[in-house]
Write a protein that binds this DNA or RNA. Sequence first.
DNA 1: CTGAAAGCGCTTACAG
DNA 2: CTGAAAGCGCTTACAG
Lengths: 350, 350
Amino acid sequence: VRKTAYTVYDIARLAGVSPSTVSRVLTGNSRVSQEKEARIRSVIAELNFRPNAHARTLLARRSRTLGVLIPDLTNLFFSQTFLALETAALSQGYSLIVGNTLNLNNSPVSPLETYYVNSLLERQVDGLLYMGGRVNMVAPESLVVREMIALRETLPLVAINGRCEGTGIHEVSSDEGAGVENLVGHLFGLGHREFAFLGGYRGITSFDEKLDRAAAVIGSLGGRMFPEWILPTGYSLEAGALAMATLLERKTRPTAVLGVNDYVAMGAIRGAVERGMRVPQDLSVTGFDDVSTSRFILPSLTTVNHNYQALAEAAIGVMVDLLDSRTPASKTIVSVELKVRESTGPAASR
Amino acid sequence: VRKTAYTVYDIARLAGVSPSTVSRVLTGNSRVSQEKEARIRSVIAELNFRPNAHARTLLARRSRTLGVLIPDLTNLFFSQTFLALETAALSQGYSLIVGNTLNLNNSPVSPLETYYVNSLLERQVDGLLYMGGRVNMVAPESLVVREMIALRETLPLVAINGRCEGTGIHEVSSDEGAGVENLVGHLFGLGHREFAFLGGYRGITSFDEKLDRAAAVIGSLGGRMFPEWILPTGYSLEAGALAMATLLERKTRPTAVLGVNDYVAMGAIRGAVERGMRVPQDLSVTGFDDVSTSRFILPSLTTVNHNYQALAEAAIGVMVDLLDSRTPASKTIVSVELKVRESTGPAASR
DNA sequence: CTGAAAGCGCTTACAG
DNA sequence: CTGAAAGCGCTTACAG
């Protein structure tokens, strides 16, 4: 028994006023006599009237809505980031629409990513917060660069923990390099000198940044990370288990393992334990992201926390600046925090 | 350098046709001469024109969009369900807008839930898929019932794994009762006779359903679940750890623990291990939901899988039936699947 | 303070 | 096959 929705005209008629006056009450942008306002409000309440957002947006030419592109909402890193973004956006008067691009392997051409970009633009989002996909490639194809430039010229764009070289897109990122440095420093302090790096994909901005920084720090401290200990298998739990299985077949093995994220670390720990290793007694393992479960698994994960709220507030802040025609910094770095837990321990003497 | 968006008028002018003809090409609802169509398409491509969805929706009086109300997107059960819903919806030509209501303790009056219901209605969603909150109470207040009836009269509504008695809202649910029965049966087979039930909140539909069924099955099989072993502390990892801590202070203890969900089970396992218990040697623990991480933690969780895709397809199916004025079953039950893993083992002889 | 009118960007009968 | 006109539901100058 679907009723057709009421309009301001219905409210006006029932309250004995003009639609303009109803609108004034709705927006609160103009004075209305107390008596009429009361009448209008009572009709609105009685009919449970809700103004049509599409009509409003059409006229206002702004939707007060931001689009968010996310590769995988079932990865806690992204859902936790999304939650923080939503909180920050709401507090600034914006709401969010997510596009879950399912671009798990960071393909440069994900059909769903394209679909969502178009869909969000058609819905007239005022700006786009971009994670993953086109904004995650160290060396984007020139076609992608051209597309992203066109996009940036169409509406304000902020890349979160990613970038697209040569497009001038604003970046807001966690200090992942510092996070890796903290992790390696912590492991060195425990006596570790030999490191593996598991998970991720080459050519993805955050992977390369983490790996390069790990290599640099390990090198400068006099440790080792042999190429056969670098196993970029992906970002999932399975990727972690697989990488560890491969690592443990090597003739020589490191004493510490850096997982590209918490999922890979979890998978790696299971892979190690299934093969008779103890974590951290035989092998130390670290994650990255400090996802909610990491504090509770056994052993709990030594990892790096993103400061989700600060990251989100920075991203929304830059976006709002852009929307209000201010000129925010083109790159914002948000500090991270090392979390030392049970998955790391003293290097085994051998 | 924000450009103001192009309209069909711009396209029409540049292609030398009328706006109507542009529109015909856009919708594909009418024949257009090949020559004009080609001209129009080339202008559209060149300007990267995207029709304004708000103008379209306003006219069509339907948005081809469904609203989804979810209590907590950072809980993998919900994000996995959302992903499945999205896939199912897209395949039927609908897109989804989520409202993350943050109604973690299932308060009957969550401000954010109210905000999102209004916001989604203003955005003219064609239907609402409802999880948590107002649709999760065994005995909803009469005000809530009235509100939900009004809502159901406003647009098609489907409750997923929940219900609201007395409102006639369509339900699509996992067979949680059968899941619990499978779990208890499995534990009985391992020799367990004494059970605790951890997590959840009283008065929440799915909690009561699980607990009641557990009590019934345990009773009928000749087992025991003392009231002091029932600890409804909530749904989080922390809730599980807390409940286990409390349970282990009891003078008599069960040999098996049913967690209301995987998070509670994970928290409970950690709580037990921190107090020197081994899982499953000293205590068997089960979860519910089969969240992605559950297969990888140590010990991996014996749990119940929701058949996420089937659940989502059923929910979207009912919704589409409602939208197309068919009359789907008022209640649809989707079967679940027991997953036996490492967190359960033979009852310790004592 | 209030109402009539115009317009946001589309699409769809209606003629031709 | 094509164009002119009207209208979806709002809001905002413009008069008064």
